[in-house]
Amino acid sequence: MYDQHCQALKGLKLKATPKRLAILSLLAEESAYVSPEEIWRKLQGKFGRLGLPTVYRNLEELASGGVISKVIHPNRQLYYYFCPNRHHHHHFICIACRKVEDIDFCGMDEIAKNISGTVLSHIVQVNGLCHTCSNQQEGVAL
């Protein structure tokens, strides 16, 4: 995985610094999306001097290059997720357990037919409850 992370950084013309590699490794080990603050707390012990702004800056560089994905939570908090899937796709986000699933469908061609302008980019994120969390919610009295 280390070599893949180095190659990804090289492709973005970014140095493979220990902090960038640690951020990528941490995200790759997680099975859910993570906040910048959580990343910062988990890596503070590894690096004597790691500021939260450094974590934010590195996350933005990696997300801009498509190495990691941004997750925009309904609470407006920004999270990040390492997605090894490199082809064009979107994500289903469980807002309860933070699980992320790939959606291998994009309806952009159909949407573009109904737009009078030129689409330059798009972001599709589907928020909800995964099957497990949905079943747990059914047993809870609302």
Rank of each mutant, 00 (worst) to 15 (best):
C94I: 05
K99E: 11
I39E: 01
V55Y: 02
R57F: 07
H73T: 10
K46M: 00
P53L: 08
C106G: 09
V100R: 12
C83S: 12
E60N: 03
M108W: 09
S64N: 14
T118S: 12
V71Y: 09
H89M: 03
P53T: 09
E61M: 15
G107R: 07
I123V: 03
L120C: 02
E38K: 02
L43G: 01
F105L: 15
G65T: 05
P74V: 06
I68F: 09
S64T: 07
T118A: 13
R41P: 01
H88D: 12
K99W: 06
E30Y: 01
Y80W: 11
P84K: 13
F47L: 00
L43Y: 00
T118D: 11
L50D: 00
V126F: 09
L52I: 11
V119F: 07
Y56C: 09
G48I: 02
E29C: 02
C97V: 14
R76K: 15
G66Y: 11
G66D: 09
G48R: 11
P36I: 04
N114H: 12
C130M: 06
L52H: 08
E38Q: 06
I111C: 04
R98L: 13
G65C: 07
S64Q: 15
D104Y: 02
S31T: 06
G48D: 08
Y79Q: 08
L129G: 00
L52C: 02
G128P: 14
S35N: 07
D102S: 14
V119D: 05
S121T: 09
Y80C: 11
G48K: 12
E30S: 10
N75D: 15
I95T: 15
T132F: 08
E101F: 11
C130D: 03
I111V: 12
G51Y: 05
K113N: 13
H131Q: 09
A32Y: 14
Q44C: 03
E110Q: 13
P74A: 05
